[in-house]
Nucleic acid binder design. Structure first.
Lengths: 320, 320
DNA sequence: CGCAGTGATGCCGAAATGGCATCACTCTGC
DNA sequence: GCAGAGTGATGCCATTTCGGCATCACTGCG
């Protein structure tokens, strides 16, 4: 059963938000199933009421003015909080419906996210979930736009518009086949890896920045077989024995449990850790479905992070 | 010059909010300068759209239902964020207008708040400021209601709906006339005060709870001349030599600088500190005027708190 | 040049909004 | 007990607002 959209607000707010997203009055009108003139007039009325244009009408298309940016945040606030109201009213009646939209990076889609989504769907069968895979840089924008409720990414720079719900710390490790010469170690420095063929991360991955200092300190290297911005590709290359890749344990759970890969923490002076954060738009009350999903994700991240901590303190690397 | 109210939202939201505040449809209608039937219909339409009543119509008056509470938050969110938009649009045009409503406790009205308001009015001449004096317990409610933008109080219990912008720590001290037998000390325990006539705080002041453990440990006391919930009254009594009162330095600035009173930090095991916090409703972007006022308050609180820290570290009590 | 796309505007019917009068009801004070 | 003042709900009507259609003026692309 799907809950109808609440129409408790002036159409102008919804129309404006659609136009902003579509970049065109007519496109927004089609998407809203209304005449374009209706949309046009609502925007014009809004601009008259506010005393300032919200869009620049350029030949190349629409662009938000400074006032438009201010109002866009307002529209997002109103629409998202309306969604919260809707979900909370449903919850009052015992319904657990709604939608969760999350943007994230590649690695978590392999094992972490599927598990959480499965639990979500068993506890909240009527909640729909949307997942988008984007680069780390695009994720904050999606959250602030209101296109995503939650963002899950490594090492996002903290922003006053972003709120970090939780942070998990995960060992960055060297991953390689069990028959690799270094596979027997329980700790590795980057320098000791550098003598072997390496699969490195490009600059748009957080891994790159974590290893950058170590790389610049290593003199005798140059054996980067591949540089990639896909952790999936790096994993597959390591599986084929192309070299040592560098990742957290997230995204290679199956290969680790089957023994197809080993994950050996990198230790320079201290263990090299990667921060996985869960983010929302700052200053927002979450709809119940989003809140529930966030809690489940938080729990799972905490569990895995704690698991690594425990493994470290007992001095036993979990697998191998 | 006063900025007109933005009418960008469905009247139902504004009407609902008014009704909630007034506790009556007709009263709200009068306040809004519309017919009561218009208000009534907007509420009925809203309830139909949401599929649930928002008010219980009791013979004794209106009461919010659970759904009404949920929607009340929404109305507050929308209205307050509209105010933010209005202020930011004004700021774009170089105007600095708006309104700041603050609820606070008694003590800060003597010197801290007047100074900040004066600075505010010189930098933002067109901003109006409203101040309400309430008991500590009522302040969180006012903020969550949206009746106040800022709350300034000692030792509020932290709430997920409240956001603490800053916290200043201030010495709780014994205040007395300079001719009091204990006036020469630079530190005092509560026990040593207990041998003299005391002016104590009632349970609704945070001071009471700070001293409660010390009081219960002191055996031979019973010389509480007065118990009051007014720090102003306590100050006046101390000025007349009625006994030792217990406060922070906030609210007795003039008496301290003129030498009419001395303020001697209370030290039990550690110095007894009182937390002065500045609060807003959690999850809210502040209008520019409110933001500016909050910054000035923050600066002033930090300055005074730091001043006490410095005085402590150098081992010199500032006055006396 | 034609064509497809855009935003703006005039016209008209439909829907929503607000004002007035009124009803049914409760509580208060005499 | 009864009158008066208060409450929220409702029917009727004028006004305003909203949306749909057709159209105009303009831009970019072959």
């Amino acid at each position: 059963m799907k809950h109808r959209k609440l129409r408790i607000h002036a159409p102008a707010i919804l129309y404006f938000d659609k136009v902003r997203r579509c970049g065109s009055f007519r496109e927004a009108a089609r998407s809203l199933n209304v005449a374009s003139s209706a949309v046009n007039r609502q925007i014009l009325k809004l601009e008259e009421e506010l005393g300032t244009p919200l869009f620049e009408r350029l030949p190349s298309g629409l662009r938000l003015t400074a006032a438009g940016e201010i109002f866009a945040r307002h529209a997002t606030v109103v629409i998202q909080d309306t969604e919260r109201v809707s979900s909370q009213l449903d919850a009052l009646q015992g319904l657990r419906s709604g939608h969760v939209e999350i943007t994230t990076v590649e690695g978590v889609t392999v094992d972490l996210l599927p598990g959480v989504i499965e639990r979500m769907r068993s506890q909240y069968p009527n909640v729909t979930v949307g997942v988008s895979i984007l680069g780390s840089t695009a994720i904050p924008e999606q959250i602030m736009n209101g296109q995503a409720d939650l963002g899950l990414a490594f090492a996002l720079l903290r922003n006053s518009e972003l709120h970090q719900l939780i942070r998990g710390r995960f060992h960055l490790g060297a991953i390689m086949r069990p028959d690799h010469p270094l596979a027997g170690h329980s700790r590795l420095t980057f320098a000791s890896c550098a003598a072997h063929p390496l699969i490195l991360a490009k600059a748009d991955l957080s891994i790159h920045h974590l290893l950058a200092p170590a790389i610049s300190h290593s003199k005798n290297w140059g054996r980067a077989v591949v540089e990639t911005s896909s952790v999936e590709l790096a994993k597959k290359l390591a599986l084929r024995g192309a070299g040592i890749a560098f990742q957290t344990r997230i995204g290679i759970e199956e290969e680790l449990s089957r023994g197809d890969l080993v994950h050996i923490p990198i230790v320079n002076n201290q263990p090299v850790m990667s921060d996985l954060g869960l983010y929302t738009r700052a200053g927002r009350s979450l709809p119940v479905a989003v809140d529930a999903f966030a809690r489940m994700l938080t729990e799972e991240i905490t569990r895995r992070s704690q698991q690594e901590q425990d493994a470290l303190s007992t001095g036993i690397t979990p697998i191998l």
